[in-house]
Nucleic acid binder design. Sequence first.
DNA 1: CGCGGCTGGTTCGAATTCGAACAATCCTAT
DNA 2: ATAGGATTGTTCGAATTCGAACCAGCCGCG
Lengths: 176, 176
Amino acid sequence: MSAGDFESRWLAPDVNAVWTRFLHVTHRLEHHIDRRLQEQHGITHTQYEIMVRLADSDERAMRMSELADRIVTAKSAVTYQINKLSEMGLVERRKCGRDNRGIWVHLTDAGAERLERAAPCILSLVRELFLDSLNCDQAAELDKLLGTWSDNLDDHDRNPIGHPDHRGPEHAPELS
Amino acid sequence: MSAGDFESRWLAPDVNAVWTRFLHVTHRLEHHIDRRLQEQHGITHTQYEIMVRLADSDERAMRMSELADRIVTAKSAVTYQINKLSEMGLVERRKCGRDNRGIWVHLTDAGAERLERAAPCILSLVRELFLDSLNCDQAAELDKLLGTWSDNLDDHDRNPIGHPDHRGPEHAPELS
DNA sequence: CGCGGCTGGTTCGAATTCGAACAATCCTAT
DNA sequence: ATAGGATTGTTCGAATTCGAACCAGCCGCG
């Protein structure tokens, strides 16, 4: 995978295909789920994700910024969505305790209920589209890959490198 | 979170983790690339993708709807982007031949040049973040998986089913 | 011909996202 | 204590996306 001449500028065709398909499939998946979720339950996939994360947390609550990290969107987008969800009564802002600027977003009972209702539908979708096609080995392998990719991203986020010739395989946080 | 039968409604924790991580990683990837591309080359990832697809086609041209399919966005979004790219002079609309309503989008020389300039940067990014972490076996495996997922999606698009009990596993791929 | 039905593209308004600027609050070291 | 710096959320305007409505031009059948 490493060797090659023209590969310094372009990707080997097969590898390129993997990347392209990856993009294509992820987009389609995202799209499909979003659509279904809106049609059948009147919420966005982002909103769904937010509620899931909340439901999974202790106290069914989370900080705004934590949420932003998990969902991977700009903070402003989170504010926007929380406003929406709040208007719908699915979520609630509470100024909790010690940190006077921080805000805890709580999943309301209504929210939990709404989530309960939506979850089976979307989960079965995820199963059919995504999970059922994985046997155990593949799942493990994929999980490992996801971990590596995640690490790579962490790495890149740490060094705000432009596009340095920066050879040298990953794990180079040897910052002097 | 009591154990037991809950897998009919909820996902087994490990499997659930895979899906969550998948979403997380894909979002981050998308995000990261988009950012870099905009900062260093003044174009969106979508725009980049459009140009790549054009460059890869015969005649460096493609139909609007074809484009929409490949990129996986609404037709209107394509129109929007093509307008933008057209204003930038990177792309050109031409009424080609037989079908008087169809339009061929051509990559201009300027477009090709711009693409050539952007490609190395983003490709090296894709390599570092994504591809270099794949050995040959994994690449092959991943490719197969992507194929399966894609098929699943095709399947689902074909049947506009709601959420049918529709048992019958998607003929799980016979991979060794 | 010549009337319905499709398909390819565009236009429009609404929803959502982003990043930058801001305000308030916390923290740490002097 | 206290100034400087980081962190938390919000607000704002610009960019992008989506879907539905719409206008052709194509096609098949009478």
